[in-house]
Design a protein around this nucleic acid. Structure first.
Lengths: 339, 339
DNA sequence: CTGAAAGCGCTTACAG
DNA sequence: CTGAAAGCGCTTACAG
């Protein structure tokens, strides 16, 4: 069964005018008389006309659509982020086509090609963990499609980038903890070949070094971003015999894994050991005790990335290669004892 | 700065053939010689040709795109759902345009109109809580666009619908609890004018009635789907003086609110009071103690809804008005003491 | 104030 | 094996 859409021609036929007249009336062109516009308005109503945006896009060579590429929607950080991108885009009359790479480089590539094929006006991408080939981004560059990276980027290609001031945020948070007397802090790290993993780990090391605290290599446990990685990391740490006062987990899923593993040993949070993660308020409050976090606001990031991209699309930007770093602040919640 | 896209004409020019030849070669048409196809393939590579899907869609009168309308992406149930729709759609070569209504009827209407304007091949919608006007859905009917409701629907309009077998699932779960001796069960209900709220509440009442347990009206506390609603409900219940053994919360956010409010009183879960919610494993395991849930698998729902819709689009379906109910099973986790 | 022409980038019968 | 014609539904100068 075919769908049943009315065209401008149908309206024109009914009113015995040309379709150009209808097109103009619809866009409130000064050429057209008020009476004619009113007639058209009525016919639109009666017939249930819905303008074919595809045709409009082809004609205008603009789609008013943004393509998003994210690694994973099941991570609530990204869900909030996408939600805020949708809002920010809608405010400026853009739609969103959403694609998910599932952290696979191949899907990422296909998604970007498809989005370019759909002629989205711009691309918002958070690269997958394993992306190493820059070819697809060189292609994006070649066809001159505006592209903004957020949260995770391929650097040095001249695309704009929105990220958190991760290293600074880490240092500030740890300084605060250290000044309260917490000198024994371990780090469950991500991978050092991702910008997030390496920035956070560097921040950790720098903070300790700045405060003259020696770094114990077996207190830095590298290995992934999932719940199980947090469990494994704690087990490994536990096996060393000597436990820290606080664990700095590279993200909230790893922190959750740490919670689970800690509980299994019978230890209590925060009395026996404290946990600090990176995250945002809504997700920190799903933990009990509520997770202390170096705060990363996905809503703020989404807004900034979307408007940066739209500015580039509309040519409001001086440089098309801005790098925006969002400040982080430490939220001291109940997963760390107040001192 | 304009984008820089190659067209079939550009390829034709370079190869000194007509664009029709190129078009045919690209779709592997038998008309075209193997050598010519090879030449075209090479030119595509060299020039970086990316087919303009907009033009293709206009010509074919098909977009291979599904429009999604959900109330809220920040609810992880929906995030998982959308993710699984994206996957299921991708498997059959469909894209997704995602819109979020934020539970507002007006946004919902605008989103649907836009999606129809974009000429998506079909619509997947979960109606907002407050939708009362059917006009937009009558319009969808009129233009004959395939539409499948999921999770929440406007009934009686002849659209297909995928939902959970909520009442049965509730009854089965409560039977299990009652047979273990839990006779005092309260219900934090949603709104009775939403299908979810009323189905769950009916299931609750029926289960008690079936087991000859009198219904205490002040143990049914109606009022919303958010964390704060759960907090408020528990405070109200607590004020009555007489507490149940188990609280059946209408969803996981309300359950989380109950957790928080319970903790504030110094009571322990599950020793002093148990909590049961509706949800899915991934979200239940974010709770500690892990939440016992009447299981609702968003991934299953997404897959079913997407393939039902695509079947309707492709005309593989006998009736375009199927109603699919997904079975629920009870996951007895640590938020209720084992008896 | 109204309309004819050309074009956006593609595909699909139909000829040759 | 290759191409000319018509069309998808819209918009935008340009005439009248």
């Amino acid at each position: 069964m075919k769908t049943n859409h009315i065209t401008q021609q149908d309206i024109a036929d009914r009113l015995h005018v040309s379709r150009i007249t209808v097109s103009k009336a619809l866009r409130d062109h000064p050429d057209i008389s008020a009476e004619m516009k009113e007639k058209v308005r009525k016919a639109v109503e009666d017939l249930g006309y819905s303008p074919n945006l595809i045709a409009k896009q082809l004609t205008l060579q603009k789609t008013f659509t943004l393509g998003i590429v994210i690694p994973d929607l099941e991570n609530s950080f990204f869900a909030y982020l996408v939600d805020s991108i949708i809002d920010a885009a809608a405010e400026r009359d853009y739609h969103i086509i959403l694609t998910v790479s599932r952290e696979k480089e191949l899907s990422e590539r296909n998604n970007i090609m498809n989005l370019i094929g759909m002629r989205v006006d711009g691309l918002l991408v958070c690269v997958s963990q394993h992306t190493s080939d820059r070819k697809i981004f060189e292609y994006a560059r070649k066809v001159r499609i505006p592209l903004v990276f957020f949260d995770r980027a391929i650097r040095g290609m001249g695309f704009s980038y929105v990220a958190f001031e991760d290293r600074e945020g880490t240092i500030a948070a740890l300084n605060q903890l250290i000044s309260r007397g917490y000198l024994n802090i371990a780090h469950f790290a991500g991978y050092s070949n991702t910008s997030i993993g390496s920035e956070r780990c560097h921040g950790y090391k720098e903070a300790l070094a700045n405060n003259g605290i020696p770094i114990r290599e077996n207190w830095i446990i590298e290995g992934g971003y999932e719940i199980n990685d947090g469990i494994r990391a704690f087990e490994q740490l536990y096996a060393t015999g000597k436990l820290p006062e606080i664990i700095l987990a590279v993200n909230d899923r790893v922190a959750l894994g740490a919670y689970k593993a800690i509980r299994r040993t019978g230890m209590r949070i925060p009395e026996d050991i404290g946990v600090v993660g990176y995250g945002f308020n809504e997700s920190a409050h799903l933990f009990s005790p509520t997770l202390s976090v170096i705060n990363q606001d996905p809503i703020k990031m989404g807004k900034i990335a979307a408007s940066l991209l739209i500015d580039e699309i509309q040519g409001n930007t001086p440089s098309s290669h801005s790098e925006i770093l969002i400040q982080e602040d430490f939220h001291w919640n109940t997963s760390v004892m107040k001192r």
